[in-house]
Amino acid sequence: MSQTQATTAAVAEIVTFRLNEGADPTAFVTAARAIEPMLKASGNVLSRTLSCDKDGMWTDHVTWTTMEAAKSTAEAMMADPIAAPMMQMIDPAHVSMRHGLIKYQQE
């Protein structure tokens, strides 16, 4: 495994959230995977990881090529009907999103 210094303007997007009461986690993962073709087609996603802790807090961690790519693709995703099933399962009262320039990445 190599370790590299980030030399581009790649951006980490970290979104934490809870699902709506009664939402099925398996159905949520299926809905989250349904947006994968759109994300890949954008050419802006370098990686994506979706996780859930024992307390039901989810984290969607996406590595984008640039900050502009993160913002523009997110806007397009919100307007895409394919993303609606995923978005409808997320409790908007428990969403936190942040972005940061990647300063170091272990591969």
Rank of each mutant, 00 (worst) to 15 (best):
M1S: 15
S2N: 11
Q3E: 14
T4N: 12
T4W: 02
Q5V: 13
A6E: 15
A6P: 01
A6W: 04
T8P: 04
T8I: 08
A9F: 03
V11D: 04
A12Y: 00
V15M: 11
T16K: 02
F17S: 01
F17G: 01
R18N: 05
L19F: 09
L19E: 01
N20P: 02
N20G: 06
E21H: 11
G22E: 09
A23R: 00
A23N: 05
A23C: 09
A27V: 10
F28Y: 15
V29W: 05
T30F: 08
T30N: 14
A34I: 09
I35M: 15
I35G: 05
I35A: 12
E36V: 14
M38L: 15
M38K: 11
L39C: 07
A41F: 06
G43T: 09
G43N: 08
N44I: 03
N44T: 10
L46W: 00
L46E: 04
L46Q: 07
S47I: 07
R48F: 04
L50Y: 02
C52I: 06
D53Q: 04
D53L: 02
D55E: 14
W58M: 04
W58L: 05
T59M: 10
H61S: 12
V62T: 10
V62E: 01
T63Q: 10
T63N: 08
W64C: 03
M67Q: 12
M67V: 05
E68F: 03
A69L: 07
A69D: 11
A69S: 13
A70P: 04
K71F: 06
A74N: 13
E75C: 10
E75P: 04
E75N: 14
A76S: 14
M77C: 13
A79F: 12
I82V: 15
P85V: 12
P85I: 12
M86F: 08
M86A: 15
Q88C: 10
D91S: 08
D91E: 07
P92H: 08
P92G: 08
A93F: 01
A93W: 01
A93E: 10
H94P: 00
V95M: 02
M97Y: 04
M97P: 03
R98Q: 07
R98I: 01
R98N: 06
R98D: 05
H99E: 01
H99V: 01
G100L: 05
I102Y: 00
Q105E: 12
E107P: 00
E107Y: 01
